[in-house]
Amino acid sequence: MTAETQPLIKIESVYKSYDMGAEIVHALRGINLTITRGEYVAIMGPSGSGKSTLMNILGCLDTPTSGSFILNGKQVSEMDDNELADIRNQEIGFVFQTFNLLPRSTSLRNVELPMIYAGIDAEERRQIAKQALISVGLGERINHKPNELSGGQCQRVAIARALVNNPSILLADEPTGNLDTPTGDEIMLLFDKLHASGRNTIILVTHEEDIAQRARRIVRIRDGLIASDESNIPK
């Protein structure tokens, strides 16, 4: 299989259980999922469905109890702490509901952060970060700190930060959850644009139906299993 036809993400019979002391909670009970490069997938499900657990595994923040997860040709399920940290740095761009920017650092410093951990030198880092901020429409705000920015602007900084290391996946967890509807729409337009460029694979984790409808494929999770997996044409 060549890199083009090989799936970017291949999850096979993944189980995840948590030992809660009194009982063992089975959050995922045998998930199979394949995502190819360039897809725009929404993962939906009510709370307690295992949606967050799946997102943590997709984001290499956690490893499955059993089953295999191959990301970009690499077997993630067997990795140790440091290897996971490296693969998160190289392959995953996180966008969180609460932005998670460093409050005392400027937009530029925030966007530089993943490149610091990647060991890119200062001058190059600064150039790439500046470019990334310009591309999300914040070229004028590179020296502002998060408390001087609106919610939408903070989320744009977070998206710029997620993209600077050219990750395989852009993993967004309720990216509009803390934003009002018009601002949320702007952010979703930005995702549409990123998808249209064809370079990014986007995975959107949400419980909002109209947000999920922006994606080209919707995977619904219920009780630790995939309930449905269908393609979607945005309205």
Binding site: G59, L61, D81, N82, A85, D86, R88, N89, Q90, F94, F96, N100, L102, L113, P114, Y117, A118, R161, N165
Partner: peptide, 16 residues
């Protein structure tokens, strides 16, 4: 704690 979580999520190793 949250900052530590974020740093780890975007690739900081244990030693860092």
């Amino acid at each position: 704690t949250k900052e530590i979580g974020l740093r780890k999520a975007i690739g900081a190793r244990r030693r860092t």
